[in-house]
């Protein structure tokens, strides 16, 4: 019986090897009657076919929400949701919002104090006062 080595559990490194889009679904709500949905109706008619065809990994659902402002809701693989009200916006402005939702991670918004973040361990290891030769003061 051969001895097999323990397999290391792989950690997710999205983008290394393959990239998985975090946004899995996008709900698009509009109103047939309200004037604030005018831009949204134009977006659905003219821009959405191209946008949906360019992003086949996202599921799009288009449904009316009568007498309410138009809305874009992104659903993410971490279970999060992000909703953007796009009332009175032009179709191209709505496209910007759709791209924002598509590119979002689904995480809660938080302040980024350190712009560079890595999950790789440091090559130098964790500093310890009990190891090493010490430093002459």
């Amino acid at each position: 019986m051969t001895v097999s080595a323990l397999k290391a559990v792989s950690t997710g490194r999205n983008g290394v090897g393959a990239f998985i889009l975090q946004c899995k679904k996008m709900d698009i709500h509009y109103c047939d009657w309200a004037g604030s949905s005018k831009g949204m109706n134009g977006f659905i008619k003219s821009i959405l076919p191209k946008f949906a065809a360019a992003n086949p990994q996202i599921e799009f659902t288009v449904s009316p929400r009568p007498t309410k402002h138009p809305l874009l809701v992104g659903h993410y693989i971490n279970g999060g949701q992000k909703a953007v009200c796009v009332r009175n916006m032009e179709p191209l402005q709505i496209l910007k919002k759709a791209e924002l939702l598509r590119d979002a991670s689904g995480e809660k918004l938080k302040k980024v104090s350190k712009p560079v973040h890595s999950i790789n361990q440091s090559v130098r290891g964790v500093w310890s006062p009990y190891h090493g030769n010490g430093m002459a003061v």
Binding site: L48, P49, A52, P56, F60, T61, V62, S63, P64
Partner: peptide, 12 residues
């Protein structure tokens, strides 16, 4: 006609 798009005629 797109496979990843669903249209609903009324409110969901």
């Amino acid at each position: 006609a797109l496979p990843n798009v669903t249209l609903y005629p009324r409110r969901v």
